[in-house]
Structure formats: C-alpha cells, structure tokens
Design a protein around this nucleic acid. Structure first.
Lengths: 154, 154
DNA sequence: CATAATGCGTATGTAGCATAACTATTCGGC
DNA sequence: GCCGAATAGTTATGCTACATACGCATTATG
C-alpha cells in the first residue's frame, strides 16, 4: 500500500507530556524552518543575531555581543571570523583599550542584514500563523519564565 | 566592584520577540536542568527516552524506536550501543525477519529506568512550578502546534 | 612595579544532527 | 526459482553547538 507499513505507532507513555521533549521537537522544527530560509544566503541564525545586534549597537566588544546572545566568547570567534572573511563585519581597534576590538557591520553587511531581516519576518509570520498572535505572546511569556526562573509570574 | 562593570546591556531589538530565539534559550535551560539530574547516572535524555519507550513497547525494532523519538536511525546506533555495553538493554533476533533486531530492557535497565523516572519527575515538577500546571498545558499545546503544522488550532 | 583581572584567541573534546555508502535480508514481478 | 527493488541495520564522515583549559597582550590595582 501507500506508505503505511505494519507500524502501529509505539506507545510513548507520558513522553509527549514532558517539557524537555516538547521543547526539543519544537525547537528543531523552528530551527529547520529558519535555516531553510537563510541557507541560500549561507548565514546561520546565530550569525544573523550577531548582525542584528551590531546594527543597533555599533562598536560593541566581542564579549558584550556574545554574552548578550548567550554564546560563549570562545565559540564566538570562529562564528564571527566567518562573517569577517566575507566582508560583512569588521573588528576595529578601540581607542583607549588596545586589548579590545569594536565590532561593526560593513556596508555589505548592512545590505545583507536587510535581506535577512525580510526572510526572518516571513518565517516568523508563518510560525505565528500556526498559533495566532495571542498564542505567540503567551508562548513567549511562558518560555521566558522557563529560561529564567527570576522571571516569576511577572 | 562586584560584577557590574560598565556593561550597559546592549539593545537587542526585537530579538527577544522571536520564537526561534526564545525557544533556543528555553530549551537550553531545560536541557541543562535535565542533564544535571541524570549526569550522576551517566544517562543522557535521549537514552532515557529510548528506555522509556522500550519499557512500554518491548521488542520494538530500532527503526521504530528512532522514528518515534525523532532520532535518525544512523545516530541511534551508537546511542543504543552505549546502553547495551552497560547491560541495560539488548538486541535480540526477531523470528521471521533475520534483518531486524528487537530491542528490550534488561532487568538492570528496568531498575535504572525506575531511578531515572523518579529524577525526571523531580525536575519536571521544578519546571512546572515555574509556570504552573495550566501554563504547562498551554505551553505543550502551543509547542505541539509549532512542531507539527497539521495540529491546526485543534 | 608586581600581581591580578580583563579581552581576545587557540586548542581540544564531546554531543547532536545529517548524508552517503555498504551488507544482509526480504519482497515483488515475472 | 531468479533478479532487481526495498528494508533493517551498520559504518564512516563532516559540520555545528557547546564546554573547558590554556596562553598572550593589555589594563587595572595595591
């Protein structure tokens, strides 16, 4: 027959009721959609986020950007290197502290960011369509409380 | 001073309003908590899930288990190998199909699973406490709709 | 000025996820 | 019965994410 072999779906027990499991699956699905959209531009979501932060905060130090995004300083380096090799961003020396590097978007980076933002808006809209605007707000609130216990019932 | 340097928090723009971003952070936080609980037993969440499925569905094939959990067949092998080396599970030949292997928990595996389930219940309760039982149900519903578009508004 | 702390970078290891290719076995059509 | 397609499992490999330890230059502190 079509594609329904003798696979009676296994009994997953209460696994679908576990937050970790549901989160993992949802995150995988969403990530997949995000990557599909940006794959043609060869930019990963984390890199896009970096570019967005730099657009609003030119000159930030690496440690500030990576901390703001929850990326480890050490893993930030190759991620940013790849962007710099493509001429989308650059490190400039900081006046007054010769250790630090200020991070900036180039013109090419700013241009690409505009395209990325448009793509992002599209799939964000697709996702929102699945749960409705209210659902999205509710979801964001719940996720924030899970991420950061300090959020309380806010 | 303590640990409040001259870091004025960067402007993240609408990044916190993005589902992908919020999901990634929440998933990282929850995964961290899960791993912390099971680290002492040297079992990872995916392995625990496999054991749970086998407990309810003894004799399942590898492809069925991995498909049910959203793991690729190919990555399932080393994951299961590790469990088998520890004597927690086993592969048995299947009558009627010499290609297939039926998967089973051993007694040791069943015993360990009980401990894992208890640990899991604990941190699941901790997580639920952060958002309330209603919040959890709402969250699970929204995540399911994100994961699987077919879920519709059902 | 010696020492600690900071900002950045390198090296390394592990886990997760994905693809291609292989063996053994079973199935389908003839 | 035989041959090609499909299936179950496995191996090999690469890439990304994430974590830790360490080193180097520079700056801050006492």
């Amino acid at each position: 027959m079509e594609d329904a072999p003798n696979h009676p779906p296994p009994d997953l027990g209460h696994l679908p009721m576990l937050l970790g499991h549901a989160l993992r699956r949802a995150q995988a699905a969403v990530l997949h959609e995000a990557q599909a959209g940006m794959a043609e531009l060869d930019i990963r979501p984390a890199q896009h986020a970096v570019m967005q932060v730099l657009h609003r905060n030119p000159g930030l130090r690496q440690s500030q950007v990576s901390q703001a995004l929850g990326i480890q300083r050490t893993n930030f380096v190759p991620l940013f290197d790849a962007l710099e090799r493509r001429g989308l961003v650059e490190r400039r020396d900081v006046a007054g502290d010769r250790r630090a590097k200020g991070l900036f978007l180039t013109d090419a980076g700013t241009a690409l960011l505009a395209r990325l933002d448009r793509i992002q808006a599209e799939y964000e809209a697709r996702l929102t369509a699945r749960i409705g605007p209210d659902g999205k707000q509710t979801l964001l609130g719940l996720l924030a409380r899970l991420s950061d216990p300090a959020f309380g019932p806010g």
